[in-house]
Amino acid sequence: MIQTIDFQIEALKDMKKYPKLFYLGNLALLNSKKISVVGSRKPNQYARSLTQELCSKLSAHGVTIVSGGAIGIDAIAHKSAGAEHTIMVAGTGLDTRYPAINKALISDIEQKGLVLSQFESGTTSKKYNFPLRNELIVALGEILVVAYGDLNSGTSRSVEYAQKMGKEIYVFPHRIGESEGTNKLLQDGIAKAIYDIDSFVSMFEEESQNRIEADEFLLFCRKNPNYEDVIRYDAQKLFAYELQGKVEVKNLKVYVL
C-alpha cells in the first residue's frame, strides 16, 4: 500500500524545496549509507560492465544504490545492487510502474527495497517531472556517480544539483569520443575518476567498519531490533547514542545512523 513519509530526512534539506514523499517498501534503507548512480539510457558496453561491478561490490559492503529506474544505467545499477539494496526514485505516481519495460524490476524493488516519489497517485510521465526526480536522487546519495553521459544530456542537470549541494562527483574514465559529458567533467576538474573499483569501494568499507568496530551495542542495533529489546540490552547506551546521533528510534525499532 502506498504511504506517505511522515518524518524529515536530513539529506533532503539541501533541496530547493523539501518534498512531500510517497513510498512503497523498506524505509530502513534511508538509514544506510547511500550512493547515487545515474547515466545515459544508451551506455556503451564498457560503462555497463563497470556499473555492474561497482554497484554489486558496493552493495556487498552495505551501501545502498539510489537511481531512477530508467532503462540503461539506472536499471543496471538497481539490478547489480540487488533489489534489497536499492532505492528507486520514480518520476510518476507510485500507482504507475514506469517505464513499463522495467515493470518486473520495479515490482521487485517495491517488495524488497524502497521506491519513492514526490508525485501523487495518478501522476503520469511528464517531461518536467524528471528534473525534480533527479534532484531527489542526488540529494539522497552522499556522493554522485555518473557512469556515462553525453554532452548536454539529462545527467548534466544531476551534476548541477550535486554541485549546488556540495557533493563529490565521480565518473569512469572513457575513451576519447565516448561519454564526452563525463570526460568534460574530468577535464574541467568537476569530477574525480574511478580508476580502480576495488579501491573506490574500500573507502566505504573502511568507513563502515570504523563506525561500528569494537562496539557491541551498535552491532546489536544493526539488526534493527525492537525498542523494548534494546532497552533491556542497554537502556543507558541507547539514550546516550540517540543524543549523539548514532542511532534512531522509529516505529518502535532502532536503526544505526
Rank of each mutant, 00 (worst) to 15 (best):
D6F: 09
I9C: 07
A11C: 11
L12S: 00
K13V: 02
M15L: 06
M15T: 06
Y18L: 12
K20V: 09
L21T: 00
F22C: 01
F22W: 04
L27V: 06
L29S: 07
L30E: 08
N31T: 06
S40P: 07
R41C: 02
K42Y: 15
A47F: 05
R48S: 15
Q52C: 09
L54S: 10
C55L: 12
S56W: 06
K57Y: 10
K57R: 15
I71W: 14
A75C: 04
K79I: 02
K79Y: 03
M88E: 02
D95Y: 13
T96A: 08
L105S: 04
I109T: 08
G122Y: 09
E135C: 02
L136S: 01
L136R: 03
V138L: 01
L144R: 01
S158E: 04
E160F: 14
G166D: 05
E168Y: 02
H174R: 04
G181D: 05
L186E: 10
I190P: 03
E206I: 14
E207Q: 05
S208M: 03
Q209R: 08
R211E: 10
I212W: 02
R222T: 02
N224D: 06
P225T: 05
P225Q: 05
Y227M: 08
E228A: 13
V230A: 08
D234G: 13
Y241R: 05
V247C: 10
E248K: 13
V249T: 09
V254G: 12
V256S: 10
